[in-house]
Design a protein around this nucleic acid. Sequence first.
DNA 1: CTACTTTCGCGACTGAGTTGCATTAACAAT
DNA 2: ATTGTTAATGCAACTCAGTCGCGAAAGTAG
Lengths: 126, 126
Amino acid sequence: MGIIRKTKSVTTVLQIFEEKQEAKSVVNLIEIVKDKMNKTTVYRILDRLEQDGIIHSFNGKDGLKWYAKCKGCSASHHSDKHPHFQCTECNKVECLSVEIKIPSIKNHIVDSTDILLTGQCEVCSA
Amino acid sequence: MGIIRKTKSVTTVLQIFEEKQEAKSVVNLIEIVKDKMNKTTVYRILDRLEQDGIIHSFNGKDGLKWYAKCKGCSASHHSDKHPHFQCTECNKVECLSVEIKIPSIKNHIVDSTDILLTGQCEVCSA
DNA sequence: CTACTTTCGCGACTGAGTTGCATTAACAAT
DNA sequence: ATTGTTAATGCAACTCAGTCGCGAAAGTAG
């Protein structure tokens, strides 16, 4: 059970994700809201939102943790198999709706799949 | 050009990768060689070995950097498209030789592909 | 052996993420 | 609306991976 109270901070963070359908690194988020709330609060809100399946997280190429909200997100259907794309020029990260098939691995049980593609996005490759 | 001199430290690190064909996190490596060399040295050797294509690196689920030496590694053919598998029980990481096909993404140029699978390995799922 | 240059060790530092605790603010019940 | 409960926040101190600068040590070529 993540979010129980709808505080101003929670609303602020959620708005950021709803405005644009793109992923944000925690560092980036903290920077955006730095005069509205403490960094600890940002970390905690993100944790709770993720527990509730409202947003999902993954690790960027830079080693930082990134968060995004996408249509498929929900508390029940938490297995996000969609790949992420990080642009090496503008550094933006998008969720891709492409389906990538993972062959079953002999003698292994696969629980989760993290796929991160890097390259140039639509804007930067033009 | 990474490695220029074959020092004792370099040899020690290389031996670890040659003994077992499994990936090691930097933290783990530092622990293993902690009374033979300094942690800064370990970081620097790994950087150089990677530049030369002798080993390759990727980010684990834990956010740590992992390194591995595998057959396909070479300075020229540096694009390692093979997936990695991290066991959620014993925490070991293996390089998989499975080929995973990434569909081309519209209006995007894909340079690299990082795939990390998590689950239970052969030993732990038995 | 000597001279040159890479590599190493050490200590201090950076920056992401965490923790403990006192304070504040949601929310439910009265 | 007031009160009581407890989740949520702010703050400061902390942890830990990874980096940096610099003087000392060890490779390597001649």
